[in-house]
């Protein structure tokens, strides 16, 4: 869990939140929007919470996923066994409820209409139907405890082919894509690995251990903190494509501009 989120209860942090939200609406808001509390699962949930979750589910999810989350063919898959982690990931990143059918659900932080408590209730309710992976515990989300170098190695083997070695995303088949991981909250990164949303495969704890997942988070956060940005503008981290675009536009304009000035007769 990021330190910002931990400080969220103090009024000063609220002010800071407001300031950051105004300055960097997209990414900063994303970093603060964590959804369900760590460790959320149906166990130990109050009857009241389950009831609220059921209400929310029926109002927002049942039309596609079925009244009992049993699934509804093409419209929506069964949610049995997806776990609280999947619900939190999908709802707290604004992917669900799906505004309109498309190639894939897009991350849309500005579309999250639920409070953290509501998301937690929803997650607890879905988990109570058939249990699945829990929302990760806070200790696995602390990037400062992770080993970014090991995370990088795990990331390059398991993630870079889709999300790009700089975490900026990449194309999949038929218009699908792996989204950017920049500005994504540690909890959602973890949940995505754990639950394998949409096209993404699942990386369960036997495949990538919680420690390794934390390492991956540490690696991604180090990129976010500018570890990759050393020698100037990164041109969208597109690799040679960005370089080529620059060379053939701004670069060549500068040279030809100088050449034209050189060849023109002085006034």
């Amino acid at each position: 869990m990021s330190s910002l989120a931990a400080r969220r209860r103090s009024p000063l942090a609220l002010l800071m939140l407001l300031f950051l939200g105004l300055t960097f609406t997209g990414t900063a808001y994303a970093a603060l929007q964590t959804g369900a509390a760590p460790g959320t699962s149906a166990e130990g949930a109050s009857q009241e919470q389950l009831g609220e979750g059921r209400q929310l589910f029926l109002a927002n999810c049942a039309s596609c996923h079925g009244a009992n989350a049993e699934g509804n063919g093409e419209a929506g898959p069964s949610l049995y066994g997806v776990g609280a982690a999947a619900v939190d990931f999908q709802v707290a990143t604004g992917r669900m409820p799906l505004p309109a059918p498309g190639v894939q659900a897009e991350r849309n932080i500005s579309q999250v209409h639920f409070s953290d408590e509501q998301i937690e209730a929803l997650a607890v309710y879905v988990d109570s139907l058939a249990p699945g992976p829990d929302v990760p515990e806070e200790q696995w989300l602390d990037a400062s405890q992770g080993d970014a170098a090991n995370g990088g190695a795990v990331y390059r083997t398991n993630c870079a082919m889709c999300h790009n070695s700089s975490g900026t995303g990449g194309a999949l088949t038929r218009g699908k894509y792996a989204p950017t991981l920049m500005g994504v909250d540690a909890q959602h990164i973890y949940e995505a690995m754990l639950t394998g949303p949409q096209s993404m495969p699942v990386f369960n704890d036997q495949n990538i251990t919680p420690e390794e997942k934390r390492d991956v988070i540490a690696f991604l956060k180090s990129i976010e903190d500018g570890a990759n940005d050393q020698g100037g503008h990164t041109l969208g981290s597109l690799g040679p494509a960005g370089d080529a675009l620059f060379a053939w536009t701004i670069g060549i304009l500068a040279f030809i501009g100088a050449a034209v000035w050189l060849g023109r007769k002085a006034a």
């Binding site: 495969p201 699942v202 990386f203």
Partner: peptide, 21 residues
């Protein structure tokens, strides 16, 4: 064995939807 950690894999570890390198 899982690359790069080197862990061996039980059949039960390979849940549906997961991918092991």
């Amino acid at each position: 064995r899982i690359d790069p950690s080197g862990a061996a894999i039980r059949a039960g570890d390979v849940t549906q939807g997961s991918v092991f390198h």
